[in-house]
């Protein structure tokens, strides 16, 4: 029965897709009128007032999310650089492209990102594992997903909200700039990172007694500095500096890459009126 239904679905694949997309054309004329009527008269002198944080949003969370967004671009590059070849064997830009391709092989990563933000900064610790599992700890707020369910846990209030993991989730607040990286699609990464980043310099440095590489690049106007272990080709840290002010915007320290992360990190249970987060040992 189910099989028959599925075969029928496949036979009508294109028709179904066309039908599905018709939904987005409904009411078009009405929306068009509304839009044209609402266009500002002095159009290019007006800036839209959208995307502001309402006052009731927690300050810490605001900083954390902003920091997370800022880190997204950083990670696009540092992940690419995890397998950057030693300079001299290739031109930096070519090595960069190679690294981008190799990035798609990364299966998991654990890192801490901090933002100075004039002394008011915060930190986000994140674990991520292909294809869609993650855990973010932002102050007393924990978000996880095992790919099927998404868990939002307020540690202080001891409240757990569980929902289906459908489409882009809150992790995209951090990862959105990475395009398809965390969905193992190399071309998406190439589009978002390869075409926008440029390696400015690559030099040998001693970092904490180790022989390392310091790579400087730009992307979207910002400057990035990476410290890579030459032998292990591991990232020690990444810094992003604002292209406008030159100030340090974020500082990423990678703790682990391609290490096994237990499933319990991505799930939070609720039993007998208590929330059980194994990571937090509750």
């Amino acid at each position: 029965m189910v099989q028959k239904r599925n075969e029928k679905n496949m036979d009508n694949f294109d028709n179904n897709l066309t039908h599905r997309y018709e939904e987005f054309t409904q009411g078009h004329a009405q929306f068009r009128c509304q839009l044209l009527e609402s266009l500002p008269a002095d159009q290019w002198a007006v800036e839209p007032a959208v995307g502001k944080w309402p006052s009731f949003v927690g300050v810490k969370l605001r900083f954390a999310i902003r920091a997370a967004m800022a880190a997204a671009a950083v990670f696009a590059i540092f992940l690419g650089a995890t397998s950057l070849l030693s300079p001299g064997t290739e031109e930096p830009q070519a090595a960069w492209a190679t690294a981008i391709e190799k990035t798609t092989q990364l299966q998991s990563i654990h890192f801490i990102m901090t933002t100075p933000n004039g002394g008011k900064g915060s930190s986000v610790e994140m674990w991520w594992r292909r294809p869609g599992s993650f855990r973010m700890e932002i102050g007393g707020f924990v978000q996880t997903s095992n790919g099927h369910k998404r868990y939002n846990y307020n540690d202080k209030a001891n409240v757990l909200v569980v929902s289906d993991a459908e489409g882009p989730g809150p992790e995209m607040a951090i990862l959105s700039e990475l395009g398809g990286l965390f969905f193992s699609e190399a071309y998406t990464l190439s589009g978002d990172v390869t075409n926008k980043s440029e390696v400015l310099s690559c030099e040998d440095v001693i970092y904490k007694g180790e022989s390392c590489l310091k790579i400087v690049s730009t992307m979207n106007g910002d400057r990035f500095e990476y410290i890579l272990d030459k032998k292990e080709q591991l990232i020690y840290e990444v810094k992003r500096f604002s292209g406008m002010s030159g100030k340090l915007m974020s500082h990423v320290v990678v703790l682990e890459a391609d290490k096994e992360i237990p499933e319990s990190m991505f799930e939070i249970e609720a039993k007998g009126g208590k929330v059980i987060d194994r990571r937090l040992k509750k």
């Binding site: 959208v50 944080w53 707020f141 939002n152 757990l160 909200v161 607040a173």
Partner: peptide, 24 residues
């Protein structure tokens, strides 16, 4: 992306207002 951030914020507020242990 801004919408996603807003959704995240709304869920946070919801969690604070609603004492329910789990909301599906």
């Amino acid at each position: 992306r801004e919408y996603i951030r807003g959704r995240l914020r709304d869920r946070h507020v919801l969690a604070g207002l609603n004492p329910a242990e789990t909301i599906t």
